[in-house]
Amino acid sequence: MSLSELDQAALGRVGMMRQVQPEYYVMRLKAVAGDLNVRQLACIAEVAELYGQGSVHLSTRQGVEIHYVHRDHLEKAKETLAAAGVEMGACGPRVRSIIACPGAETCRWGVIETKSLARELDARYFKQEMPSKFKLSVTGCSSNCTKANENDIGIRGAIEPFWEEANCTDCGLCVSFCPLGAISRRHSGEAENHGATYLIDEEQCVNCTVCTSLCPSNAWVAGRKGYTVFIGGTMGRNPRFGSVLKKIVESEEEVYALVDASIGYFREHGLKKERFGHMIDRIGLEKIREEIVEKAAAIHGEPD
């Protein structure tokens, strides 16, 4: 099929959106986890110069858009980009580009390898058809730089802090620096520095790494480490924060099972143009959470 035969929806499927200006299009490019190499950047610059207006727009999903590309140049521009390994992004009711922060590879707060996870999610789910647009985000820790709970599915690095009594010097600093005020000190001994116990309120704890990173005597350590999975986040006209599907998932394979089960559930029960989170509100979070976790356990091959 030649380009001229493609309708707007078909162009949207390959990441091209009609502009207000007749005959001109936006080319939305994919950059998984916001990563592009210099060869790709040079090619994008060349295409923007040749076929656009010599500038690019950086999108909120870590992608690059080339604006003002004439309809007659779309195919040639797409071929040129593809030759440098630059793929088109996605528009419409399908899985959009996966975003991620730099994660544990370079960030001292990072708990998980966000980029490899984002690339795997991209390979598994990108551009899959959905009832509505569907956004996934991976963020390395509770600082939440890539806003896991504002996406249809968000995956956030998480640790479960554990207090190693033998290492503790009772400096008390953790009580002050815990951003959520989740750590408390109980003093049961007769003298200072004897009998002090530090407790964490698991309900308040957001599984960040501040205590394990900052404790001067390494008394706070990561007891368990993994991923918090959020479902149903969305911004836009009717914003909704994502709900926790599972607070600590310890294996990457279980993350994929939960994503598979969530996507499967949305495909089965979501109404056309209804966002995942709004479907959750319509049907009920507890019911959905139970069914998704059960289905994921079956996929993953382990009882929850």
């Binding site: 010097t169 400096c171 008390g172 600093l173 951003p179 501040v210 900052l214 001067p216």
Partner: peptide, 23 residues
């Protein structure tokens, strides 16, 4: 808050010793 977190991070990185604290 954030000011404390960043300062403690620097203190630990520099190898200094935090002995006690008071809120």
């Amino acid at each position: 808050g954030e000011s404390l977190i960043q300062a403690v991070r620097s203190i630990n990185d520099a190898g200094f010793r935090i002995i006690s604290s008071e809120q």
